[in-house]
């Protein structure tokens, strides 16, 4: 199978994730979309690794997973504390970043 197809899939997943981040209001769903984008990147890395015949891309994919795991910990903690404070997981309710 042509590895380029994997790249198309990665682009599709990334687009879905990006659209979800921009459109969805629920913080959990936004968060999952971020994960989707990260994994789309991982897929692209692995595909490039295979295409070029070296391991650099796969190694970077591991790094991405480590960072994503750390991000999940911090991100979920923030979401939980926001939910406790505001009784809502909607990102629109937390529009505090303005003058």
């Amino acid at each position: 199978m042509n590895p380029v197809n994997y790249l198309y899939l990665a682009a599709l997943l990334f687009t879905i994730g990006a659209a979800g981040v921009l459109i969805r209001r629920n913080a959990i769903v936004v968060f999952m979309c971020v994960e989707l984008m990260l994994n789309a990147c991982n897929l692209a890395f692995v595909t490039f690794s295979r295409m070029h015949g070296n391991l650099d891309g796969q190694i970077i994919a591991f790094f991405t997973m480590v960072v994503a795991a750390a991000e999940v910990v911090v991100g979920l903690a923030i979401i939980v504390s926001v939910f406790r404070a505001r009784h809502s997981a909607s990102v629109d309710d937390a529009s505090l970043m303005k003058l």
């Binding site: 981040v21 921009l22 459109i23 990102v91 003058l99």
Partner: peptide
């Protein structure tokens, strides 16, 4: 210009994207 700063994270995300 201030109105652009509406506090919605996704608006900022749009500008980043």
């Amino acid at each position: 210009l201030r109105k652009l700063q509406n506090g919605y994270a996704r608006t900022y995300a749009v500008s980043m994207f």
